[in-house]
Design a protein around this nucleic acid. Structure first.
Lengths: 223, 223
DNA sequence: TAGATTGTTAATCGATTAACAATC
DNA sequence: TAGATTGTTAATCGATTAACAATC
């Protein structure tokens, strides 16, 4: 198999993400594609078709091509996609070609699992700090090298730290106040594990992960 | 305000969940409605309109009514919904009017957070057992009363236990094997935290929660 | 009765899939 | 060249929203 980059055809848009409106579902699928490509690279597989890439994730081949078409032309007609090439492009599109800087608010049960969770670091995220009302107890719970400091120090710590994403795992009663402080600090993305709808300005992206909700909606199928 | 149950108009379908095909998104919203109703009950609010219920969650009022219409007629035209009445109906529809029985596979970082997570128990789930390859280490990690036993004992333990949902938090390399064993045991619902597409029969419901994916798709917005 | 809000049908919107000319 | 697969347009499907008669 010939090894050649489709460098000419590539035009990985450096567009601001907000410019056009890319559906969130597309972004999630791009992440999935990227993961499959990573696995293929590890198996030294150099090319893949949209049909095969889709099949591995349960998607239609047209969907794969359409998703990619939002951002440019990455394939070679009659041939398919160069795995490495496409992966590089996707990482760039997703902003994963640099380290994404993360802090964690609330180092309780869930928080300490998240901060110790190897998966994040492995995937190119840098967990910079954990914040907790009771940092001593939090340090006991979470076996981690990540510094855990008092929530009262949030502003002075974050000021100089250039944080990309804040992960919110505080008690429900504190979630909105925490969100307000994060917004005031200029943080533009929040991954919220607290089952509370946050009130934030439109330029702040909040993603909700609601574990009890997932379990609850599953229980519908086992009645 | 008059207190009267719309008992006559109620016809909370006892339909098998699979009979008609209710979109998963509808089921998730029902859970959210149920939660809002719970909060309203605690505030002693007795009635609510579809408009107000939707507003609190960011949904259109027509969507609220349409979602409910999948299952019956629960409101009073010109009036709205009795909070308690609707909540009872939703709990029945979701299968949450009885205790939902859950086991956890893999008591590592994430697993031990999940097993200690008060939210589940509070919401009417019973966490019956944790299973881990190394139950001694797992018990140290997870500060919980839930019995943690060896994964080798899965079959003999579950046989007599009537499990509704299995939560999967094992290493990726073991996820498919674990899923096969759960399927063989007749378990019909899996909440999967492992970033691996599971191969299961069509009557088994698998819900994926992929924490790294959530963080990754958020990072798109902060490039 | 007048006012309000439901349940439901019709209209709209958006996302997925099919089809196919372009092209490697 | 013949075969394969892309990128993209058109068709389909499904979900959301608007509208309104029914009715409390």
């Amino acid at each position: 198999m010939q090894r050649r980059m489709s460098t000419e055809s590539r035009q990985a848009s450096g567009e601001s993400p907000e410019a056009r409106n890319i559906p969130q579902a597309v972004i999630k699928r791009l992440s999935l594609y990227s993961r499959v490509l990573q696995a293929l690279e590890m198996q030294n597989i150099e090319k893949i078709s949209s049909a095969e890439l889709g099949r591995q994730l349960g998607f239609n081949s047209a969907q794969v091509r359409k998703d990619l078409a939002f951002f440019g032309q990455f394939g070679v007609p009659g041939f398919g996609y160069y795995v490495e090439d496409l992966r590089i492009n996707l990482r760039h599109i997703l902003g994963k070609d640099r380290t994404v800087r993360v802090i964690l608010l609330g180092v309780g049960n869930l928080g300490s699992a998240l901060i110790s969770y190897g998966g994040f670091t492995k995937q190119g995220f840098a967990m910079l700090r954990g914040f907790d009302i009771d940092p001593d107890r939090a340090r006991e719970r979470a076996h981690t090298d990540v510094p855990i400091v008092s929530t009262t120090q949030l502003e002075q710590e974050v000021g100089s730290m250039d944080v990309d994403i804040a992960v919110l795992a505080v008690p429900a009663s504190q979630a909105q106040e925490m969100a307000d402080r994060l917004v005031a600090l200029g943080i533009k993305a929040i991954l919220n594990f607290v089952p509370v709808r946050l009130n934030t300005p439109p330029d702040v992206h909040v993603r909700y992960v609601d574990l009890a909700l997932e379990l609850e909606s599953l229980s519908y199928y086992v009645r």
